[in-house]
Design a protein around this nucleic acid. Sequence first.
RNA 1: UCCUUAGUAGCUCAGUUGGUUAGAGCGGCGGACUGUUAAUCCGUAGGUCGUAGGUUCGAGUCCUACCUGAGGAGCCA
Length: 479
Amino acid sequence: MQRTKVADLLRSNEIGKTFTVKGWVRTRRGNKQVNFVALNDGSGINNLQIVVDMEQFDEALVRRITTGAAISVDGELQKSQGSGQNVELLAKTIEILGDSDPDKYPLQPKKHSLEFLREIAHLRFRTNTFGAIARVRHSMIFAVHEFFNKKGFYNIHTPIITASDAEGAGEMFQVTTLDLDKLPRTEDGKIDYSKDFFGKPTNLTVSGQLEGELAALAMSEIYTFGPTFRAENSNTSRHLSEFWMIEPEMAFYELKDNMDLAEEFLRYLIQYALENCKDDLEFLSQRQQQEEKGKKEADRAMELIEKLKFVLEDDFARVTYTEAIQILENSKPNKKNQFNYPVKGFGTDLQSEHERYLVEKHFKKPVILTDYPKEIKAFYMKLNDDNNTVRAMDVLFPQIGEIIGGSQREESYEKLTSRMAEMNIPEEEMWWFLDTRRYGSVPHSGFGLGFERLMLFVTGMTNIRDVIPFPRAPKSAEF
RNA sequence: UCCUUAGUAGCUCAGUUGGUUAGAGCGGCGGACUGUUAAUCCGUAGGUCGUAGGUUCGAGUCCUACCUGAGGAGCCA
């Protein structure tokens, strides 16, 4: 018989009909007369209750239905006598597909800490929380492509392995096939990369932006959605060594168009989650509420779904860096010396505590900060007429901070090369990038959205290692 | 990388100023209960206390180093 998914069966009202379900056992309980098995196959957050009439089954078989075991059940759908579910499956035949030794299976029918589950990340898909996160993650991936497809953007695959070290977005992972025990040397003792696989030093990409610009200056509107790698030794709940980034790049967009797109994009994704991930979000919300019980009232996060809706209600605040500095300088915590890093006028690099104050205390909604001093931003950002600030924009979200970083790009060949000279970026390595400014250069803009940061916000999880299936971080590459 | 903090049964934790056979809850296992809802009740088996040194008559409990986790900072997405 054809297999029916648990989620479909739970929605079904074909009482009395026979179905086959396959999945993994969450719990079994009962007595000599009747047993109840909670079965999940990943199709949704809710389990199907299998009712096992003990008179119909061999006790030895039923004993093998342990937490974690895989089973196949043929049975009749019926209205549930219990109150926890509408329908249940009265088992007619049960087949054990895969046993699971209850003495050794690490997942117990009880609450586990997220830290423990990180140590058994190969099995954590089987928990409610990580099943929900995996489904939400899928929906968000799908929504990203849907959004851009609807708007006529083309998805571009940019390279994972690159030879350019130009963006300076952080430490890079080197890619090599050289034998590290016997490195070939040139006459002056340096490593001879002409012997390496690509004939020159190569790394894993830290951003697809530069290649994205090449595509945008022909295709008009493109986006990338791929893995990026940073070998930065950063050990926080907001950073990964391997993460997924979405980078749209648009010809003929100025900074305001860029901001409008970023805001529309984020709203679209959140709206999509609310409409398509209701069950999972409700579960994640309950989970979060449980977690928050131990905290002081002032430290508690807003209820998840309420928080998501709240972001949709209001336009994001848009302020320039200069205005933000003034707000911060005149803020209570600054005057009372409560910031660890006091704000001292133009040029101060904003710290996490400052961003959090702006978003969570002052504006109480997402904030887009623009026009930063050129000194603290990348070389490719368009210089403003004041010669002092660049057309950068950072979108700041409550709790997670910077979720998007972007800018209008410098389209002038002269200004770009002079900025590169100031920042000691070798022109000869960037000849291909500079060609876009030599031939048919136009105003253009783009931004990068850290996909896992979005996932943090949408799921209400607080550690980024919990919103990607197999997190990569310093000293951590298991599974 | 820096600061703080933690590392005791499968999991979550308690172990008083260093002192006889290291405790609990949950989970597992055995049993009871004619429909349960991480069920309930009774019983039972599991640890030498992150690793390596050291102090001491004696260390889970003090000291040093290292490893690992968590929270925060920097870097950023």
